[in-house]
């Protein structure tokens, strides 16, 4: 088991209600988990708890436990956790350290902090820049990049720390359509590499395409944790992918009685 969340609850200092309550679930190595929920349902709070920002960065009352690769996040400093689990946030701009003048040096920021020897640093920097298609930008100032490029840089910076789990908190919500495409190409690479990924996303077509399972939050509680087909089939309140909506309207379920959630599964149904 890669991640074990056990009866997790959290209330921010000054917050009226619990942002999270009684959350329990597990994630296996290599699984791709989508996280959904309305605004303020606690998605980002859950993400913060998974990477140790709760309880180490945010003040508040935490209940229950989060184990990352067997490490209890309450007892492990973020500087150590970040080599097990990385996170990319919404705003690409605010993830640039501001202390480095080039894209290449920006990636070194975390590596210098963990005290990685210089030769390994260079190896890792070149590897991640190549992986996310930003090697040609290595001498540019990080602030001069486009949103999509900056977000891929943020991903590269995190991946250089070699985590086995990556949390992505609405990584494309502040990008233009081109940027969204670019970042999803990079997310596909994480999946190919067999990383354990947790993706918070409102665009359900993307969630359905990538996720093995979807975790649905409602008012800080875990409402449902299941395959995309069952999530979109049994929760009429949430916006399903367009493919599902079309097949529901045409009354074309799959053989197992559920409606498809991806384009790939929809085409044979509509042809046949």
């Amino acid at each position: 088991m890669k991640i074990k969340v056990d009866n997790l609850g959290f209330r921010y200092t000054g917050g009226k209600e619990r942002a999270l309550e009684g959350i329990t679930f597990t994630v296996n190595q290599g699984e791709f988990i989508g996280i959904m929920g309305k605004n303020k349902s606690g998605k980002s709070t859950l993400a913060s708890a998974l990477v140790g920002l709760i309880p180490h960065f945010f003040k508040g009352a935490m209940r229950g436990n989060v184990y990352i690769d067997g490490l209890d996040t309450q007892e492990t400093p973020i500087a150590e956790l970040c080599q097990k689990v990385g996170i990319v946030f919404q705003n690409p701009f605010n993830q640039i350290s501001g202390a480095k003048l080039t894209v290449y040096e920006e990636v070194s920021f975390g590596l210098e902090n963990i005290g990685l020897p210089r030769n390994q640093m260079i190896e890792r920097i070149e590897e991640v820049l190549e992986l996310f298609g930003i090697a040609h930008l290595k001498d540019r100032n990080p602030f001069s990049l486009s949103g999509g490029q900056m977000q891929r840089l943020a991903l590269a910076c995190i991946m250089a720390l070699r985590p086995e789990i990556v949390v992505l908190d609405e990584p494309t919500s502040q990008l233009d359509p081109l940027g969204v495409e670019e970042v999803y190409k990079s997310i596909a690479k994480l999946k190919e590499k067999g990383l354990t990924v947790l993706l918070i996303e409102h665009k359900t077509e993307y969630l359905a395409e990538y996720s093995d399972k979807i975790l649905l939050l409602e008012n800080g509680k875990l409402k449902n944790y299941d395959t995309p087909e069952r999530i979109f089939g049994t929760n009429p309140g949430i916006q399903a992918p367009v493919y599902t909506q079309v097949c529901q309207a045409l009354n074309k379920p799959k053989e197992n009685g559920l409606y498809p959630v991806t384009l790939k599964d929809t085409i044979p149904l509509l042809k046949g």
Binding site: S48, V51, L53, H56, F57, P77, I78, A79, C82, Q83, G86, I87, F89, N91, F93, N94, Q95, I96, S97, G98, E105, S108, F109, G110, L111, E112, N113, I114, G115, L116, P117, R118, M121, I122, I125, A154, C157, I158, L161
Partner: peptide, 26 residues
């Protein structure tokens, strides 16, 4: 808001690590 977000982003890149640091530039 940016300051808080940037602080979080630095934190998850081991900014508060206590061990010995290394340097990219020789």
């Amino acid at each position: 808001v940016s300051a808080q977000e940037r602080a979080m982003a630095l934190e998850v890149r081991a900014f508060n690590a206590t061990g010995k640091r290394t340097f990219l530039q020789n």
